[in-house]
């Protein structure tokens, strides 16, 4: 029987065919925040500005990337045997910010280039007997 897919964290991304990170946007200045800020704006130029929840752009360009070859400490849930994984920092053009994420399963880290375009997908972060825990990842376009 297939395992149930559940988000590894609630409220940080949407699911479906075109998943997206959930951020917030200041209604006055247009500053974006991720993770989303609900109660207050972190922009000191407009401390009282109202915030709206928005889906962040699904595509961006690689700012930098690195592959981790050693198992990190908890609370990371590392598979046994350990599998190296790649972290990609991506510049979003509209939001003008850099967001981290793991590289999607199946993508070749050796083929990555700074400046190349990637898009947001959902992938498996870890699993237990009943669930696969999903998280956002970046996949080369």
């Amino acid at each position: 029987m297939a395992k149930t897919r559940v988000p590894a964290i609630e409220g940080w991304f949407t699911t479906g065919d075109e998943p997206a990170l959930v951020g917030s946007r200041g209604k006055e200045t247009g500053s974006y925040f991720f993770p989303k800020s609900v109660a207050f704006s972190r922009n000191p130029a407009a401390p009282a500005e109202k915030l709206e929840e928005v889906a962040l752009g699904r595509r961006g360009r690689i700012w930098s990337f690195t592959t981790n070859y050693y198992p990190p400490p908890e609370p990371y849930v590392a598979p046994d045997p350990f599998v190296p994984y790649t972290i990609v920092a991506v510049e979003l053009p509209e939001e003008q910010m850099v967001v981290l994420g793991q590289l999607a399963e199946g993508a070749d880290p050796a083929a990555l280039k700074v400046g190349a375009e990637v898009e947001l997908v959902l992938g498996t972060l870890y699993e237990d007997d009943e669930h696969e825990y999903e998280v956002w990842k970046w996949r080369p376009v």
Partner: peptide
């Protein structure tokens, strides 16, 4: 600090690796 390990496995050396690659680029 807890979440970056949980959701990304972003250790301190991972950030150092990002900066180093950026310098090369």
């Amino acid at each position: 600090d807890w979440l970056r390990f949980r959701l990304l496995g972003a250790t301190n050396p991972a950030y150092f690796g990002l900066y180093a690659r950026r310098r090369m680029e």
